[in-house]
Design a protein around this nucleic acid. Structure first.
Lengths: 231, 231, 231, 231
DNA sequence: GATGAATGAGGCTTCATTCAT
DNA sequence: TATGAATGAAGCCTCATTCAT
């Protein structure tokens, strides 16, 4: 199973030889991705992007008419159409819905969340109000399909009787929220606040899955001595 | 129970000329809150804040020594500084931990999440890497105390046997993640994407609480007796 | 003998009792003198002057129409008409011209150069090009009379045969240059450069007088073995 | 003997469009020198320097990271950095110490004092207290080496028996003071006061040398044989 | 007269963007 | 195409000066 990356990894470099002109936009996008993720939109200097891409400032504007344009291109470029593949893998999964959910979330982290590329999601959320058009694009191309995937996993559990019947509209967020929270955390406070007990993403996810699946409350079978919600 | 006002309510200016030194900081803070939430920290122009507060550029710097200082003041004014009260109310709460959790989350929303002030949390997460000092300030003044509050609720449930024993370190995020996700959503994608099925915060929270408490899985023994959302 | 101060010392305070309105300008001038000398014209803040004078910023502008105006007033105020007195004392001096020169220079230092008030001379030289009118005033009121005094001392020495006959026009600078140099040094580089061998004004003056009177060269009587200028 | 050029002579720009990166710093330095000397450091506007150099405000900061940096560059360019050459020439001089002193002082004037660059010395003394770092820079780069040069001349005269033995610490000022005084005079009072008998620098220096070497007093033995200015 | 809150021109500096080469 | 020097609008902040109280 390979819930492959949601972000293009610019395989550009044909063989590291006679590439140049054709590779330019890709190199610029890669450099811009790095810097936007690292420093945010407004703190990223056009010249720095150019330098990291190995070209001059002027060249950058040959390919992108403005810094905003570059940013939009980075976001658009980062979205790859790998959902079909992912969807296929999920559908092909043999095992319980719980297992599928576990696998999916951990894989999502290792393939996407842990990647620098995940910074794009953080970036889009951060800059959404300044780039509404981009937000809509991202919503349409990334969020909705992702939601759909989560929905399919939950549906599978409900259909099999493994999961309780929940309002699907909000049930999806049970999975989505912890993941996006982790992303945001990693790229914001977690990245700049010294912390003696930092979040270990794998442990975090494991713990979240446990609660997502079984809840905080003692199971009713355990005849809770006291404190049960309805007792 | 009244988790009293989590947010300052800057009342309208006294008259026209009568507004004096005492009112200025509040007016500036209110204007700054509006603009920071609306456009982000970097994109907000000091002069614009002043103008919205009805004063000149220079006046702003009479009350806040720098834009960053202004931001800190907004955070303090809008977000932190109310924890002691909230803490007291939580400790005074009579009822099960589940009920406390429910009340706390709903109240958190109505008193903070639903207000403009909540945009600050989104803002800090968005701009944290550019303003590490601000991020640390927020971490210290807002995040840590908030975590402590959640911890106290969960501990109460565990002590009473109502909640399962969880690793507290990650257990906290079970509560924190859905709330911060909602905030981010509201202020980023949710704010600029037309949606025919928008998240209704109260319903979202209700649903999240249900899952947090009971999990997605069917309870092992109690055959479908509970867990149906509509039952 | 008292070659009294060239600068007014604001004897203002009538008896430290019912002074206020009448004393204001004087207090402001005194405060401004301090600060201008200490920090220069442009680095001195109007508000700081007011604060040191114990009044509000507005009051300052009640008495002086602008910061430039204040500066001019400070300089004009600092010039007192004590030359007649000084002149008298010099004329009354009994002793050789050499002794008179020595006494005059040392006294000049202790009564004026060592005083904070000497900063005015430095200030005028520093700001001369920005305040030409002030420079002319100072030239007329301070420099010319001072030059006249030096001239009288030198003339006395020449008349008595004690001094060589020199072109008086430039001879004056033999005395003036070392003194003004000391002033400048004290208030500029000497004031802000850490120095393990700082100039001790009294020693400096003593040494300068020695050279002024006897020159660097070995006296001809000593049958200079070699290196004599004209030998 | 040729105490070669103490000052950079920024030759005119090559053409009109051809002036490129190599010429810019020199043009900016020349413009800055003009303005700093003319108006002082604080009163000189960065934009004005740029305009006089024929470039835009932004270009200035392409070459100098700040106004202070620009000033340091002016100092380096106009004043220091020529000492080694000068030192060599002094050491190579064949003749008496008196002659060396004469030549050095007159040359110092024609090569430095008479040029615009000398305004820098006046400027530093004027603004030293406001820019301590600048003052220290000047002290280190200009004053100390200059003092060393004077010391070497005096030492030579003492070693040869031509000069009396003096405390070197203060002896240096015998030479330094008249020169710095002349500089100050030229750029402050002398520059803005109409004068019907202005100082003629060459005559001033000649006269000062005479006194420095032989003093004001009649030589003890040689009855008026020398010391007359015109003899 | 006295106050001190308010003003706003103006300074330094940054940086996206242009354009001559 | 590519370059990188040049531009200049715009941002933050200061502070002399004004003016309502």
């Amino acid at each position: 199973m390979s819930l492959s990356s949601l972000v293009n990894d610019h395989p550009a470099a044909p063989a590291k030889r006679a590439r140049r002109k054709e590779a330019r936009p890709g190199e610029l996008l890669a450099a811009a991705l790095d810097l936007f993720v690292e420093k945010g939109f407004s703190a990223t200097r056009a010249e720095e992007v150019a330098k990291r891409a190995g070209v001059s400032k002027g060249t950058l504007f040959l390919y992108f008419s403005s810094k905003e344009d570059l940013f939009k291109a980075v976001v658009r470029d980062s979205v790859s159409g790998r959902y079909p593949e992912w969807r296929t893998e999920i559908q092909a999964f043999k095992g319980s819905a719980s297992e599928l959910l576990q696998r999916s979330m951990h894989t999502w982290w290792s393939r996407y969340g842990a990647t620098k590329a995940s910074g794009i999601s953080k970036l889009v959320m951060s800059e959404a109000t300044n780039f509404p058009e981009l937000a809509m694009f991202y919503q349409r191309e990334v969020v909705e399909p992702g939601r759909e995937l989560i929905r399919s996993i939950l549906q599978r559990g409900m259909d099999s009787g493994e999961f309780r019947r929940l309002d699907m509209k909000y049930g999806i967020y049970t999975v989505l929220a912890p993941m996006l929270f982790l992303l945001m955390w990693k790229h914001s406070l977690g990245a700049c606040v010294p912390n003696n007990a930092p979040i270990v993403p794998e442990d975090y996810i494991t713990a979240q899955i446990d609660t997502i699946l079984h809840g905080l409350c003692m199971p009713p079978a355990a005849h809770a001595k006291k404190g049960n919600k309805s007792s």
